[in-house]
Design a protein around this nucleic acid. Structure first.
Length: 445
RNA sequence: CGGGGCGUAGCGCAGCCUGGUAGCGCGUCUGUUUUGGGUACAGAAGGUCGUGAGUUCGAAUCUCGCCGCCCCGACCA
């Protein structure tokens, strides 16, 4: 993509309404525009990031054997009356009336719809286990939206629901989700720590929240620093293997890690004092096992092998996709702008032409641009007639992890510069070598 | 929902107290400048001062209503 043909409305000055760094950078980098309180348009750059995050979530869910579908944003109130939540949910639910005076709502969550789908079509234990999920916009009419996309009213979220015959099978689904989430966050360059959480109104004993450590996080967290040494890495997982999933859960949850809701100072005191950490975190996901709580209430049951009707064991599992865009920035930025992890970067590399209009640099940039595209990468070529400083500043702000700098001085020696946004380290090499190097780097992601 | 604050050019702001029909910086546009980390000079465009009513000879400025937005708190992916 040539920057001169792209739509990238970067701002030089910081909008006054933005308080936290991710919000400021998302606005300044032209990723989002606020439409109204807690509701945002995703401009081209932000939309690309959102799609990359969504794609990683999809890939890891499918890898874990979970099945995608798509439920609507606007739902009929009838199902919610059946579950009893229409009256209970309160003002956070956006209620709408259609032209026929039917009560509708913009879904804040999808238990009712998914349960209706399940009970309509599934009646045999032979159809279990089943985990269905979707990634869809939700609306919760927050009293006070803030922090940009981190606490919007409209937000994009993956929510999944497992249906199992037994508690053991449902706990395997729980573990499977935990493992898949660990993989998901790592691919986005994040360390998200599973922490024992409060189940709140959903109920059930088993629930973990995944928190990304960040100074601006809304939750206070307490943990054993040893947990931050754990890496999921590229280990092979058989998601059907209950014992393997269980052992990974134990590996990642045996150290002390809790939010202020479940923090127990007495237990925390057993952590060696030099490893006790108190920090802040951003919640980017949560998994629940809640047994037959909802299946009992909503009549979601199957026939077991002996012909009897058995309520299914369920759990629900969420990842805040739009929130992650902000959380990643909170966890990865510097004073000049965003630093995208390779896994979610909107463009794989920036190409900076230091002398637009110079035949040699124009040709070299075009060669690198075409070379990267041929390798399946998406470069952003800054071909504007601008000063070098302005080009570098834009690249730093939008945070592409790699930059190829092309200028007549380097070209005299046959080299361009490949620079890491994260470290600032530059290396001189031929244009062809830069293309090869970038292809290698991204082959690993 | 309780408390506080704001709304003036695309963005950031001044002007309001002490009414006299708008100004600064950045950005944008046109030239010149050919530039290795936000260059310089010259010129230009761009505003029903959130909105409605009231007071007044006259309202961005004073009064009231409404709308919108932000911050702190309590609640949530």
């Amino acid at each position: 993509m040539r920057l001169s043909r792209y739509f990238l409305p970067v701002l030089k000055e910081t909008p006054a309404d933005a308080q936290i760094v991710s919000h400021r950078y998302m606005l300044r980098a032209g990723m989002i525009k606020q439409a109204s309180a807690g509701i945002y348009s995703w401009l081209p750059l932000g939309y690309k990031v959102l799609r990359r995050i969504e794609q990683i979530v999809h890939e890891e869910q499918v890898r874990a054997g979970h099945i995608p579908l798509l439920m609507p944003t606007v739902q009929s109130a009838d199902l919610w009356r059946e579950s009893g939540r229409y009256d209970v949910y309160g003002e956070e639910m956006l209620r709408i009336r259609d032209r026929h005076d039917r009560d509708m709502l913009y879904g804040p969550t999808n238990e009712e719809l998914i349960t209706d789908i399940f009970r309509s079509y599934v009646s045999s234990y032979k159809d279990l286990p089943l985990t269905l999920y979707h990634i869809q916009w939700k609306f919760r009419d927050e009293r006070r939206p803030r922090f940009g996309v981190m606490r919007g009213r409209e937000f994009f979220m993956k929510d999944g629901y497992n249906f199992d015959l037994t508690k053991e099978a449902a706990l395997h689904a729980y573990n499977r989700h935990l493992v898949s989430y660990l993989r998901t966050y790592e691919r986005m360059g994040l360390q998200a720590i599973p922490m024992r959480a409060d189940s709140g109104p959903i109920g059930g004993d088993d629930t973990h929240e995944f928190l990304v450590l960040a100074e601006t996080g809304e939750s206070e967290v307490f943990y054993d620093s040893a947990i931050t040494d754990l890496k999921f890495g590229d280990r092979e997982i058989d998601y059907e293997d209950a014992a393997q999933c269980q052992s990974i859960l134990e590996e990642f949850t045996s150290r002390y890690a809790r939010t202020d809701e479940t923090h127990d100072p007495a237990v925390f005191a057993d952590v060696p004092s030099d490893r006790q950490r108190q920090a802040r975190g951003i919640e980017v996901g949560q998994i629940f096992y809640f047994g037959t709580k909802y299946s009992d209430a909503m009549g979601a049951s199957v026939q077991g092998p002996d012909g009897s009707s058995v309520p299914v064991h369920m759990g629900s599992h969420g990842i805040g996709v739009s929130r992650l865009a902000g959380a990643i920035i909170e966890a990865s930025h510097d004073e000049n702008g965003i630093i995208w992890p390779e896994g979610v970067t909107p463009f794989h590399a920036g190409i900076v032409n230091l002398r637009q209009g110079d035949a040699a640099t124009d040709a070299a940039c075009a060669e690198i641009h075409a070379g990267l595209i041929a390798r399946g990468l998406e470069p952003l070529y800054d071909d504007r007639d601008e000063r070098a400083g302005a080009k570098f500043a834009t690249m730093d702000l939008i945070g592409l992890p790699w930059r190829v700098t092309v200028g007549p001085r380097g070209l005299k020696n046959g080299v361009v510069e490949l620079t890491s946004r994260r470290t600032g380290d530059s290396e001189e090499m031929s244009a062809a070598a830069a293309v090869d190097r970038l292809a290698q780097i991204y082959a690993a992601h």
